[in-house]
Simulated scan of single mutants.
Amino acid sequence: MYQLIKAFVFLLLLISTSLQAQELKQVSLKTAWFEQFQFAGYYMAKEKGFYNDLGLKVNIHPFSIQNQEETVHQVNDGEIDFAVGKETLILDKAENKKIVILYALFQASPLILITTEESGINSFSDFKDKKIMASINDAKQVSIKAMLNAHNVKFTDLSFLPHSHDINDLINKKTDIMSAYISKAPFN
């Protein structure tokens, strides 16, 4: 009987060791902006081993301005498993992309429009014939469209410029208005 119990304990140890040694499932996650605090949870979960505890090896791919438009296509085509997106995902989903929207991180958009005091722009009515620097994603976002529509500003009344992500372009008058995140730009 002792030999049987000993064999059983050995078998349990062998099974539990082999279960722990199973290879972790590789998954990828792409962030929606440069490394900053809003993504700290993903990095901390990886660092603390929380993903490993769930059997996952998570590779976090940082944001790149050059390929920001590719993210939805990469998820749709199975090149990336997960991505942090923006409200434009609703439009992508409406275009029958094979994506699943899991949750809304922000309950309100952090996207704002900023200008300088010198510009003389004090309300939306002052936007007509002004240059607005916005990324392609920002210009497509529902929040900017809703802001402008709510104040009877037409897209055709604005001249959109590619975003340089350099606040000095606003200061040096290369643009009149710049899209930004309220969590960062006003504090630069």
Rank of each mutant, 00 (worst) to 15 (best):
Y2F: 14
Q3F: 15
Q3N: 14
L4N: 08
K6G: 05
F8Y: 13
V9A: 11
F10T: 02
L11M: 10
L12R: 04
L14F: 15
I15K: 11
S18P: 04
S18V: 09
S18M: 08
K25A: 01
Q26R: 07
V27G: 10
K30T: 15
A32L: 05
A32V: 01
W33S: 14
W33C: 06
F34N: 14
Q38V: 12
G41A: 01
G41P: 06
F50T: 00
F50Q: 08
D53F: 04
G55S: 02
V58G: 02
N67K: 11
Q68D: 15
E70T: 13
V72P: 13
Q74A: 13
V75G: 04
N76H: 15
G85M: 04
K86H: 12
E87W: 04
L89I: 02
K97V: 00
K98R: 13
I101S: 04
Y103R: 06
F106W: 15
F106V: 00
Q107D: 11
A108F: 11
S109Y: 14
P110N: 08
L113H: 06
L113R: 04
I121Y: 06
N122D: 10
F124Y: 14
F127W: 09
K128A: 05
D129G: 01
M133I: 01
S135Y: 10
N137R: 03
A139Q: 11
K140S: 06
V142Q: 10
S143M: 00
A146N: 12
L148Q: 08
K154I: 08
K154F: 13
F155R: 10
F155I: 00
T156S: 07
P162K: 05
H163K: 07
H165E: 07
I167Y: 11
N168W: 15
L170F: 09
I171Y: 15
N172M: 06
K174Q: 11
K174D: 05
I177C: 02
S179Q: 02
S179C: 01
S183N: 15
S183L: 05
